[in-house]
Simulated scan of single mutants.
Amino acid sequence: MQESQTKSMFVSRALEKILADKEVKRPQHSQLRRACQVALDEIKTEIEKQRLGAAAPPKANFIEADKYFLPFELACQSRSPRVVSTSLDCLQVPH
């Protein structure tokens, strides 16, 4: 469970860093902002469920990469070097 929370924190920090970038605050990046926020909300929900000891199948004890891929894909399409770099850093780290 601790490993799962560490991975969740890593992904959460990357999403928060993307959201905080001034380039992402521009209107044309509204889909990216929304995707990041949805992913952050889902991660927080999963962490809370684990903390409360909610019964979950063993597969649920790790982050499902596909579930959180959209914000990173959109970040790579943003053409903002800082945002793309943050996204790629998160995607290339072995999970």
Rank of each mutant, 00 (worst) to 15 (best):
Lys17Arg: 14
Arg34Trp: 12
Glu3Val: 10
Gln31Ile: 04
Arg13Pro: 06
Ser4Pro: 01
Lys22His: 11
Leu52Ile: 04
Arg26Ser: 10
Ser8Asn: 14
Ser4Val: 06
Val24Arg: 03
Arg13Ser: 12
Glu16Arg: 12
Gln31Ala: 10
Ala35Glu: 11
Gln28Ile: 03
Thr45Val: 05
Ser4Met: 13
Lys17Pro: 00
Leu19Ser: 10
Ala35Thr: 04
Arg51Tyr: 07
Thr6Gly: 00
Lys25Arg: 14
Gln5Ala: 09
Leu40Tyr: 04
Lys44Cys: 06
Ile18Arg: 01
Ser30Gly: 00
Glu48Met: 05
Lys22Met: 02
Met9Ala: 14
Glu3Thr: 09
Ala39Trp: 02
Arg34Gly: 05
Lys7Trp: 12
Cys36Phe: 06
Lys7Thr: 15
Leu19Lys: 10
His29Tyr: 15
Ala39Ser: 15
Val11Asn: 08
Glu48Asp: 08
Gln31Pro: 01
Lys17Gly: 10
Lys44Trp: 08
Glu16Lys: 12
Glu3Gln: 15
Leu15Met: 05
Thr45Met: 05
Val24Ala: 02
Asp21Gly: 02
Glu48Asn: 08
Ala35Asn: 02
Ser12Pro: 00
Thr6Arg: 12
Lys17Cys: 11
Ile47Gly: 07
Lys22Pro: 04
Pro27Trp: 01
Leu52Cys: 07
Leu40Glu: 07
Lys49Thr: 07
Ala35Met: 00
Cys36Thr: 01
Glu48Tyr: 06
Gln50Gly: 04
Val38Cys: 01
Arg33Met: 10
Gly53Arg: 10
Glu16Phe: 06
Ile47Leu: 08
Thr6Trp: 09
Val24Asn: 03
Glu46Ala: 09
